[in-house]
């Protein structure tokens, strides 16, 4: 078993989330008293900017897709907690609307970014709800994975 050095990052860190390919780590850091998501390259330790998520703290419960293109997390908008998905490739932000006054608590994004699981409070109980994102997000697939193009067959 090989270990990275204990206490990977300098300040207090919570809610770690690895990308599917293991190259990216998202954590919630206390930055000037605000719980803010940070994304780090696991290999060289560099921090990746997330300009579309600069505000709306406190952040919590980050989750990454396979290549780290998408980051899902819980944010604060006015009095409401809101789950959002940020696309690091084009800068777009996708809010997840929850009807009926339910509050999002925790979020998990599938590696290919086609499915989202949300833990919500519903009449004082915790529920998990699944959403299909195939109309919203492009697939974030592993490098080198075959596309769905049918194989060429020799002419009869």
């Amino acid at each position: 078993m090989e270990r990275a050095s204990g206490g990977l990052l300098a300040t207090s860190q919570q809610d770690p989330a690895l990308s599917g390919n293991g190259k990216w780590l998202a954590v919630i850091s206390d930055l000037r008293g605000r719980q803010t998501v940070q994304m780090r390259n696991v290999i060289n330790g560099s921090i990746q900017a997330l300009p579309q998520l600069k505000r709306h703290q406190p952040h919590s419960s980050p989750s990454l897709s396979w290549n780290g293109r998408y980051i899902a997390l819980i944010t604060q908008h006015g009095r409401r907690r809101m789950a959002v998905i940020a696309d690091r490739l084009n800068g777009r932000l996708h809010p997840i609307q929850l009807p009926g006054g339910r509050d999002p608590i925790q979020v998990s994004l599938a590696p290919d970014a086609q499915t989202l699981a949300l833990q919500v409070t519903d009449q004082g109980l915790w529920r998990v709800e699944i959403f299909d994102l195939s109309d919203v997000l492009e697939i974030d697939r592993p490098a080198g994975q075959a596309l769905s193009t049918p194989p060429l067959t020799p002419a009869p």
Partner: peptide, 23 residues
């Protein structure tokens, strides 16, 4: 991570939270 070969864990030590990476 995707293969289950890399693990990140939030750990409480001496009153603060660290994140450890374990292969």
């Amino acid at each position: 991570d995707g293969s289950g070969r890399l693990l990140a864990v939030q750990v409480s030590r001496n009153g603060r939270w660290d994140v450890d990476l374990i292969r």
